[in-house]
Design a protein around this nucleic acid. Structure first.
Length: 423
RNA sequence: GGAGAAUUGGCAGAGUGGUCGAAUGCGGCGGUCUUGAAAACCGUUGAGGGUCAUACCUCCGGGGGUUCGAAUCCCUCAUUCUCCGCCA
């Protein structure tokens, strides 16, 4: 959520950034400012009213103390009108505040000035492509067939136990999962991230804090009995560690990483996108989250970008880096880089990571602040990225590394799997 | 799940209807002293709204209520602790 003073002071920049994002309802900015003006006006009246009745209450207190009961009782009558007025005013204040928040929630984050214009993923800028695209022979199998051939991932069994999108990993398939998780966590730790193990369910406040609620409510599994949500990503619990806190600026950058299973309803997805491991309801991911000083957040984004790429290099996967265009950028992000690996048998690029700078958009909802050099509290910047999401990495590993002997495990992973081939 | 107790500023801990945004201690910051440091002493030290700056308003776990007036009373929810039950 944007800050109203920010909108007031940087109107041109905000409008330009929203236009890049193809946000149509620019007029809402004016509504916000009007609502905020009203809010201030009502607030002022309320404050004055309360000030007045506080004064009288104190006087009454004094009169009682000095035994002037009658005079005190007389004064009581004076407060009746003020009470009535302050009640009306605080109701008004409440409703204008709700309206203001509701307006603000409809405004996405402002795109960074490096974000290219565009409407869809077609318009994303390919920053770079690394590695050779493997040329497979005609018999190359897609990963869902390889999974069955080597009996390592069982989609049918998952259907039986739970439903579509909940595969069962078996034998070396399960071991490969565990190997990747450890590999990613070890690398993150070496890169300076603190490992945390968060809850897999979060409450409503946390959902609002990172912005899953209210707009993406339908995408999360909801446990109504206890009013909890299954996390769609570890970003939610990790970032919410810092909800409602004022961090020390000398602690910047605050780097956390977590492995978690992620749960997504993925309502509305279909076709080749959901085939095999391409899109699941439950999957594994290692996430990195950074909290940083506003002046340094873009340097940190670059660092995270490099870090994620280093993982792909170690896994010997061909990949490309995209700078998302305005139309493809998420609601809350100011700048996002996507990493995609090439999946040789499907002959397509699969998104395995997305690193974003949310600037203060999330921090505002989270009330995540720090004290600056002048001792003033201001909003911190939050960033996060996948490092990495497992299923599509597994898909690419299986497809790209299929050979006579089976599936070849990349060197860097062998220490974790304990085997060189799946066969 | 049942019964009881508790929830106050960074931490500890007073405060049970009136001048309490809140004693005191510790910690933090600034200063005096010192060659330097420690100790001692003095000062300062929560957040949000509002203002050019004051004034002023709100916040004592969350929400609601009683009252002229609530950290203090009532209701409700959450959390923590103790006992019982169940249990990896």
């Amino acid at each position: 959520m944007l800050l109203v003073p920010f909108i007031r002071e940087n109107r041109a920049q905000v409008e330009a950034g929203l236009k890049v994002k193809n946000f149509k309802d620019i007029a809402i900015l004016e509504e916000i400012i009007i609502a905020d003006d009203q809010r201030r006006e009502i607030q002022k009246k309320l404050d004055d009213t309360l000030s007045e009745s506080n004064k009288i209450a104190k006087e009454i207190g004094g009169l009682f103390k000095s035994g002037k009961v009658e005079e005190a009782n007389k004064k009581k009558a004076l407060t009746a009108d003020l009470k009535e007025l302050s009640k009306t005013l605080s109701e008004d204040l409440n409703s204008i505040q709700i309206k203001l928040t509701e307006l603000l929630l409809r405004v996405p984050n402002v795109a960074h000035n490096s974000v290219p214009k565009g409407n869809s993923e077609e318009d994303n800028e390919i920053v770079k492509t690394v590695g050779e695209i493997p040329q497979m022979d005609k018999n190359a199998l897609p990963h869902w067939e390889l999974a069955e051939k080597y009996d390592i991932i069982d989609f049918k069994l998952g259907n039986k136990i739970t439903g579509a999108g909940f595969p069962v990993y078996k034998g070396k398939g399960a071991r490969l999962q565990r190997a990747l998780i450890n590999f990613f966590l070890d690398n993150a730790t070496a890169a300076g991230f603190r490992e945390v193990q968060p809850p897999l369910m979060v409450n409503e406040d946390s959902g609002y804090g990172t912005g899953q609620l209210p707009d993406k409510e339908g995408q999360m599994y909801y446990v109504g009995e206890d009013n909890l949500y299954l996390i769609p990503t570890a970003e939610v619990p990790i970032t919410n560690i810092y909800r409602n806190t004022i961090v020390k600026s000398e602690d910047f950058p605050i780097r956390n990483t977590a492995y978690s299973q992620c749960f997504r309803r993925e309502a509305g997805s279909y076709g080749k996108d959901v085939r095999g491991l391409n899109r699941l309801h439950q999957f594994d991911k290692v996430e990195i989250v950074v909290i940083e000083h506003p002046d340094k957040s873009y340097a940190r984004l670059e660092e995270m970008n490099e870090y994620v790429q280093s993982l792909l290099v170690k896994l010997e996967l061909p990949y490309r880096v995209l700078r998302l265009c305005g139309g493809d950028l998420s609601f809350t992000s100011a700048l996002t880089f996507d990493m995609e690996v090439y999946s040789a048998a499907q002959k397509r690029w699969l998104e395995v990571s997305s690193v974003s700078n949310f600037e203060s958009y999330q921090a505002n909802r989270l009330k995540l602040r720090f004290k600056d050099e002048n001792g003033k509290t201001q909003l911190a910047h939050t960033l996060n990225g996948s490092a990495l999401a497992l299923p599509r990495i597994v898909a690419a590993l299986l497809e790209n590394n299929q050979c006579e002997q089976g599936i070849k495990i990349p060197k860097a992973l062998v220490a974790y799997t304990g085997f060189e081939y799946i066969n």
